[in-house]
Nucleic acid binder design. Structure first.
Ligand SMILES: [Mn+2]
Ligand SMILES: [Mn+2]
Ligand SMILES: [Zn+2]
Ligand SMILES: [Zn+2]
Lengths: 132, 132
DNA sequence: TTTTTACTTTAAAATCGTTCTAAACTACTT
DNA sequence: AAGTAGTTTAGAACGATTTTAAAGTAAAAA
């Protein structure tokens, strides 16, 4: 399926701007990035785009499940092209995130989901620190 | 140990403002809160404090290990008085966090920590969604 | 194809959480 | 008591993100 079809299937009009972003993000390579990182990549690709449009698109892409947003206490939002359920190593010093594939973690015992709620995904974060 | 001693032990001068905050936060009740939540509690207790001081104190308390900061993709920082290693349920709709004690989760298989790094804490986040 | 409609992009302004500045204040040391 | 190092504060500044509102574009209707 090409990117135009992916956008259509997600219910998004394949505008010029969304196609530029899709060409960068939906290439099958997993990456973690900020809005500013993406703007730099757009610029490097010979295109340009308003930062408002980049935020609009990232929100649409996220809400459609084309990308995810990482839970992070940094003040800049971090997005993730790996949309499979997976986990992360986090170096809190640098903010660097490294993917952990789902099958590398085995949760043996899980607590009961609170009454009236459904499990909507489990994420394991392993904080790591550079050895001294 | 009283709050004055706790602050001293943490290497912090027990100023009037830090004591007010310690009286609210270090009462043994686990809670998740923002800087603004805390300011409201300070006001409710008949005191008042500059928001700059609240941020200063929260940062000091966090760096001393008296409180933790939760990893969250919300744009407002969330702090946690439960400083034990523990886990959370997160309702992504509302942002509500519910503690999961450490012994309610059993991680059977964990990936190898990257070369040159040390494990600095594991956090499990279970996203939950209201049943429809 | 033309027209109409709803949706999208944009630059610029606004917003909002957080940090900085610099002056006044306070806790601790001598 | 005097000195000094650390703390508080109001207000300004900052930086990420959102809003505004006008111009542009894609899809639908005619
Ligand atoms: Mn965040
Ligand atoms: Mn912010
Ligand atoms: Zn990832
Ligand atoms: Zn907690």
């Amino acid at each position: 399926m090409n990117n135009k079809e992916k956008l259509r299937k997600a219910g998004l009009r394949p505008t010029k701007q969304r196609m530029i972003i899709a060409d960068i993000l939906l290439d099958g390579i997993n990456r973690h990035f900020t809005a500013e990182n993406l703007q730099n990549e757009i610029n490097s690709s010979g295109n340009s785009m308003s930062i408002a449009t980049i935020y609009n698109c990232l929100k649409k892409f996220r809400n459609c499940g084309l990308i995810k947003q990482v839970e992070s206490s940094k003040d800049t939002a971090i997005f993730d092209t790996n949309i499979n359920q997976h986990h992360h190593f986090l170096d809190e010093e640098t903010g660097e995130l490294i993917d952990i594939e789902n099958d590398e973690v085995n949760l043996h015992k899980l607590p009961k989901i609170p009454q009236g709620y459904l499990n909507n995904g489990v994420e394991v974060l392993i904080k790591i620190k550079k050895q001294i």
